[in-house]
Amino acid sequence: MLTLYGQELRSRLLLGTARYPSPAALEDAVRSSATEIVTVSLRRETAGGRQGGAFFDLIRSLGVHVLPNTAGCHSVAEAVLTAKMAREVFGTNWIKLEVIGHQDTLQPDVFGLVEAARILCAEGFEVFPYTTDDLVVGEHLVEAGCKVLMPWCAPIGSAMGPQNIPALRAMRAHFPDMPLIVDAGIGRPSHATTVMELGFDAVLLNTAVAGATKPALMASAFARAIDAGRDAFEAGMLEPRDFAVPSTPVIGKAVFA
């Protein structure tokens, strides 16, 4: 069982709600993934418009926890205000905190991230920070009050999969009791299995599912891959060896010559 800010969860898959071909495709993907947390955002409503209402109704009908984000924010002030507005709309203290530092790579501005996390934690938010795999940044986020860390494993939407496995392994070892969620860069189920085998607690996906030819089927594939990786981590895996080891017992083998 995964516990995030006191909330117990059976699923270790967090699912984004963007880039699906239709609202029905999003709904199907959420249901087939069995996710219990979806991410959402806030954007300007058009005058006289009702755009947000239909989406809000769809999200509420799914019966899952909502994790609003501060995607697109490039400053501490923007991220903090967006978080406060998200709490007003969604009625949750959870916030996926993004402070973007680079336009092309969407790499987090980790200095702004720590500053924004400190402000929001002090105001009662439960912060899920989108960060890098840097241990020192992670320590500062924990000191700021974060009780979850969400490192990237590759740039957002890149589908490249884990680019620095030793760094992810070090992060797991450095924060043994902290829920760690890989937030970005996963492209295929085997990537998710890999990070779960390293001992990460969960995976947050969006583009890898929404961009698939059959999003609902891919959501299901990811759910099973994540569970397989988690089971493997808990079961205890063999370390690779440089030599062969016979699996069939040698003692008692017949001698024919």
Binding site: R43, F55, E88
Partner: peptide, 27 residues
Amino acid sequence: LVHRADRSAHSLSDRDRIEILSPMKGG
């Protein structure tokens, strides 16, 4: 931020900048 309950009492001034946001899909 201006809370929902405070909108009726919140007076506006010339040149104020107002943001009105609503739920949107997000990753």
